[in-house]
């Protein structure tokens, strides 16, 4: 049983090292090619892990978070951060904007509008209104591929305005005199301590008209409006809004999700991710509690794209 077969000398150490060297060269070439041209070897269908991101836009829109005449306002920066994250995240293929907001300041609404325009350029965006989707908020959701509204919502109110309270009469009655020193006659335009001149009113009217025409242009860019009454600033119920061309569909949140999936080419079981701002830290909570104002602050001549109008509370 000791029939040993002589060890094959066919493959010497040298030839084995040669094979190893060739294989290493081959692997480096393959690695370089797949590094430079990552898509060269991709020929298979991907397993779908793409999802829908839901961003909730709620409350009056303002540049900063806090309490103003608009009530409790939401700083648009937190929405902008969420939108930027959605743009960067490759797993989010579509974004559903869940909206319940009366609008807010023109500048805040515009900031958010630009961001959503950017988002819509890169991903499928659908807006769903439940409650209010009026004025500035309507401007914000214009770039969406589809605007879906729940049955009992109010949309539209395309327009801008500014509320200026004048105390001149009251101050005169009380015998209070206010002296204003100004470099030129229009520097204190809109001051509550003097009556408005015709020139002041004309200037204010021009400002409002200019902002309104920008809003109107945006509406006409994204929507086919059937009735010019839309630009009177009136709000519309869901059915009326569909008739005049302000919205695309009336439906539920689930309908909106399904439509978004369909438009983005996602399967029915595609996951939904609610994108939320980071939770405040304990320090934030304590700090906010401390600075929380007791009364609402009246903004000075803020130009608003908001409906219903805010009420001043003492």
């Amino acid at each position: 049983m000791n029939a040993q077969i002589p060890y094959s000398t066919k493959s010497s150490d040298r030839s084995l090292f040669m094979i190893v060297a060739l294989a290493i060269i081959a692997i480096i070439i393959v690695a370089i090619v797949s590094f430079i041209y990552p898509s060269t070897f991709i020929g298979f269908e991907r397993i779908n892990i793409e999802s829908i991101g839901v961003i909730k836009i709620q409350g009056a829109l303002a540049d900063t978070q806090g309490f103003t005449i608009l009530g409790s306002t939401t700083g648009v920066q937190q929405y902008i951060n969420l939108i930027e994250n959605a743009i960067k995240d490759p797993s989010i293929k579509a974004v559903l904007l869940y909206v319940n907001s009366p609008g807010g300041t023109v500048s805040a609404s515009e900031k958010l509008f630009y961001e959503i325009e950017k988002l819509a350029y890169k991903k499928t965006v659908v807006a769903y209104v439940e409650g209010y989707g009026a004025s500035g908020t309507y401007m914000v959701i214009l770039p969406a591929k589809k605007i879906i509204v729940s049955e009992s919502s109010l949309v539209g109110s395309v327009g801008v305005y500014s509320v200026i309270i004048n105390y001149k009469g009251l101050l005169d009655k009380l015998g209070i005199q206010v002296y204003t020193f100004k470099s030129s006659k229009l520097k204190d335009i809109g001051s509550p301590y003097r009556n408005m001149t015709d020139q002041d009113k004309k200037i204010y009217g021009e400002i409002i008209q200019e902002f309104f025409s920008i809003f109107k242009e945006r509406v006409l860019k994204y929507r086919t409006i059937i009735d010019q009454e839309v630009f009177t600033g009136r709000p519309y119920t869901s059915k009326q809004a569909k008739r005049v061309g302000l919205i695309d569909e009336i439906g539920t949140y689930d309908d909106a999700i399904n439509i978004t999936k369909k438009l983005a080419g996602l399967p029915e079981d595609a996951p939904i991710r609610v994108l939320e701002p980071p939770k405040p830290s304990l320090l934030d909570l304590l700090f906010r509690l401390y600075i929380k104002p007791k009364i609402r602050i009246v903004p000075s001549h803020e130009i608003l794209a908001m409906w219903p109008p805010p009420v001043v509370e003492p």
Partner: peptide, 21 residues
């Protein structure tokens, strides 16, 4: 085995986005 090792960079560099691979 040798073949699989040589083509392994393709798999390792693309596996994160191509799960079938």
């Amino acid at each position: 085995y040798l073949l699989a090792v040589v083509i392994s960079p393709i798999i390792s560099m693309n596996s994160t986005r191509n799960l079938y691979l």
